[in-house]
Computed example of a mutant assay.
Amino acid sequence: MSLQLRDSFGAVFGRMLLRGIGQIYLLPSAGAGAVLLAAVAWQSWTMAGACLLGALTGTVWGMAAGDAVGSRAGLDGYNGALTGLGVMIVLPADLLAWSLVAPLACLATWGAHAWRRRCSVPPYTAPFVLITWLLMAAATGLDLPRAVATVTVDPGWGGPIQGLLRGVGQVMFLDDPRAGTLCLLGLALGTPWAALSAALSAGLCLLVAGLAGFPTDAALLGLYGFNAVLAAEALRTIRPGAWIWPCLGALLSLGLMRGFQLLELPSLTAPFLLATWGVRQVALRRSTQARTV
Rank of each mutant, 00 (worst) to 15 (best):
L165P: 12
G213S: 08
A218M: 09
A138L: 09
T191R: 05
P160G: 03
W98I: 00
F272V: 07
P246T: 07
M1N: 12
L107H: 01
P266G: 01
W42H: 13
A242W: 13
V171L: 09
W45A: 11
I238K: 09
G255E: 02
A138K: 03
V12N: 14
I161E: 09
A108V: 00
A65N: 03
G58V: 08
L91E: 02
T181A: 13
L174Y: 02
L263D: 11
G74T: 02
L206R: 08
D76S: 14
G84L: 05
A68E: 10
A64K: 03
L75R: 02
P92N: 11
L235R: 04
A97G: 04
A137H: 10
A50D: 07
S197E: 12
R15Q: 15
G186L: 02
L196R: 09
D76W: 05
R258W: 15
T83K: 01
S197C: 14
P177Q: 04
L207N: 01
T109N: 04
W277M: 12
T125D: 08
G203R: 08
R19H: 13
L223Q: 12
E264Q: 14
L187C: 02
A139Y: 08
S267G: 12
T237Q: 11
L284R: 01
Q289V: 14
G158F: 11
W98C: 06
R118N: 13
A275S: 13
V279T: 01
V101C: 06
I244V: 12
H113T: 13
P192A: 04
P160M: 04
G241W: 13
Q4A: 14
W61H: 07
P103L: 07
W133Y: 04
L27N: 06
T83W: 05
F9Y: 15
T150P: 08
A126M: 11
F13H: 02
P240H: 09
A32C: 15
P92S: 04
T237D: 07
P271Y: 05
I24M: 01
A147G: 12
L185F: 06
V87C: 12
L220N: 07
L107W: 03
L52R: 11
A112H: 05
A11R: 14
F13W: 10
Q261H: 12
P127H: 11
P192G: 00
A139G: 10
Q170V: 07
P246W: 06
G163T: 06
W98P: 01
Y78H: 00
G86L: 01
G190Q: 02
G255P: 04
M47K: 04
L196Q: 08
L248P: 03
P28T: 12
L251C: 06
G222S: 07
C183H: 12
P155M: 14
T276F: 00
G111S: 11
I89V: 09
S29P: 09
A93Y: 06
M257Q: 15
